[in-house]
Amino acid sequence: MTQSQEPPPAPRDGGNHDAAPLAHHFDSLKQQYDSAKLGMWVFLITEVLFFSGLFCWYAVFRANHPDVFVDGHHFLETPLGAFNTAVLIFSSLTMALAVRSAQLGRRAPLIGLLSVTLLCGLVFLGVKTAEYRQKWHHRLVPGQARIEYFFSAKRTDGVSAPPAKEFLPEGEGQAQYRQYVRQHLAHAGEEILTEEQLQGRIANLRSFMGIYFTLTGLHALHVIIGMGVIFWILVGAIRGRFGPRRFTAVDLVGLYWHLVDLIWIYLFPLLYLIH
């Protein structure tokens, strides 16, 4: 399947200098590479349109209930979000540099840069996990009462699932929780809230958190998939499978990783930076 041209007498720097196997239905390597890239772009576009459904949900909700978003963003840690943005941008740089290394047939930098990209993905997910843990701790996960009920001993007592209203913790925890919510809502001179207002604000908060978890959760899933394919590329790089005439896989995985970054570039201001 490979071209029977002898490999160019390039320096032995560990990079693969063989051309990619040329499938019989392509005229040239260039055409084969361009077709693969076109396919990847079409796939990326389906990803954009897939996320656009969620962005549409966000837009309609925010247009009709802007107060929900102003309230909600007070419960997100902007420094953590900004840190994660920087991490993803840095990983995009290392990925772009990795593609460059593959194109130039430099194997050692390729392995190093892919490892750094993978590490950045891990850091991003670590920060995300810390944020999610905090939300769970503050009882801000939608449906949390039901999840806890599902895993609690009460399940065998024949007690029906708690109504959504029982979202608040019971007893002493409830007072603390109310204090926590009040503190975070203490903006624009609204420190004093009536019981009814507080209930309404907590309901709003849950709507916001539903959007937050869906958008960031789906994005995190893409980060995990991206890390999976980067790992696959890393193994290929260690085995010396890429070179100046065969780097299509590295390039396409790079495109996917950049798209994941691109989506986060929009998610960060839409969720964390609301005034």
């Binding site: 041209q5 019989h24 194109q103």
Partner: peptide, 25 residues
């Protein structure tokens, strides 16, 4: 035949065609 022969129009003339632009550091 699933292989390209060296006499195929692409091989000799297009062997040096870069697949993609290498972006400057």
């Amino acid at each position: 035949d699933h292989t390209k022969t060296p006499s195929a129009p692409n091989s000799a003339s297009q062997a040096d065609v870069p697949l993609a632009h290498v972006v400057e550091l």
